[in-house]
Write a protein that binds this DNA or RNA. Structure first.
Lengths: 224, 224
DNA sequence: CTGTGTGAAATACTTCACAGCA
DNA sequence: TGCTGTGAAGTATTTCACACAG
């Protein structure tokens, strides 16, 4: 990180800052995960070929993906893991920590609350909500379950912008509407429904049954 | 389902049975989900425009997706929901029920065991495994937790081919190797690692932290 | 020699636009 | 008229292949 860093552009890159393909961004997270494992094994640099092999991508794909954001590599060497992880985190916006709300403390919500993997990647669940009064005040992984009705107030107090939505499907839409009204701008939706919300809002859906369905298809196909 | 059904091809379709794009298959699950909601509202047919609007796709995309598999629509009418759901389920392989093993009964595993959404879409968790002896014999959503060491025997007895892998990341690879040896052909991997397994094996990964990371990126970008 | 960055070529996927059926 | 199925056109994404750097 000395003279070499000034020849490197920060985040609009040689591709003229045209919008980055969605597919590229989704691979960025995978790269980050692999590089972190790589580092834990004591390695300091990684080449596009090595990284690609870990994930089943071609080396060209890896290089082109990074090229969207700038020049991070060293010919003959590869990429320095430290620099690369910093760059990817900066691109993804996870170079700082995010405060997240959990909405819905059922089965799945409780598991999400206890999931260690979030903290490791810069996400902290700082409040949990439910609409069942018998749960109010109960403690969950060190947090007190708050009434969903208080969401707007607490979200404002704690500056919450992202939420994990883990309520039963029939309530997902109305609850989501409430989150939006309270200023949330990103929702990770675990309910198996398509939410209809303003486009200014970012929503990513995780439907576990759909993932299994896709697996079933792949399994059936593989029997040719 | 009378004379009209014989003009309809079953599953290789007009596209000459060339391999179906991955993107198409992933949308199939979404279509199925929406159609099921649509039916619950009492509707019997749905047009490509209606279905597309629900999911934010163009009507042409919807029609082309279905065209990969045959001719399901009726000009002037749209698609009959019953026929269409049957067709999609047949394509995905979920027209029959799948028996699935849960491997790893921690936080997340327990939530998966109790998740209602699987049964609704044709998946039944028929056995749960863990390697922690203090959990053996405990009951979880009506199933007894079995020792992971007995996996091969029980999988053979109950003809288990698919597994939900919800063990801690450091053990995921070795446990997965064991599943493969026991004849499993599809794994839904919740551990935040890339498994390296024979290509005959189908693996779909669900990394919750990565989904949040993608959401963070989208949120940051949307602030232009 | 190893390995990056990148135009150019090749694929893959999506949208257009229109013929034809009910 | 309303809507499907589908070639043709357009766009996006991936792979190739090679000049150049350490």
């Amino acid at each position: 990180m000395d003279e070499s860093s000034e020849r490197r552009s920060k985040s609009s890159g040689p591709k003229g800052s045209g919008p980055v393909p969605k597919a590229v961004v989704s691979r960025l997270s995978l790269y980050l995960r692999e590089i972190q494992h790589w580092v834990r094994e004591g390695k300091e640099t990684i080449s596009s070929t090595q990284l690609g092999k870990l994930l089943g991508f071609t080396d060209a794909q890896v290089r082109k993906d990074f090229a969207y954001f700038g020049q991070f590599g060293y010919p003959g060497i590869g990429y320095r893991c430290g620099e690369l992880t910093a760059a990817i985190r900066s691109i993804l916006g996870t170079d700082r920590s995010w405060k997240v709300a959990l909405v819905g403390c059922g089965n799945l919500g409780q598991a999400l609350m206890g999931y260690r993997g979030f903290a490791d990647r810069g996400f902290e669940i700082v409040a949990a909500f439910d609409s069942d009064p018998t749960k109010f005040g109960r403690s969950l992984a060190g947090r007190t379950i708050e009434p969903l009705a208080d969401f707007a107030r607490i979200a404002a107090e704690r500056d919450l912008r992202m939420a994990l939505l883990a309520v039963p499907a029939p309530f997902a839409q109305e609850v989501a509407d409430g989150l939006v009204a309270a200023g949330v701008t990103g929702i990770l939706n675990f309910a198996p429904v398509t939410l209809s919300l303003p486009r200014t809002l970012q929503v990513i859906g995780v439907d576990l049954a759909i993932e299994l369905e896709q697996l079933a298809y792949a399994v059936v196909q593989s029997r040719s």
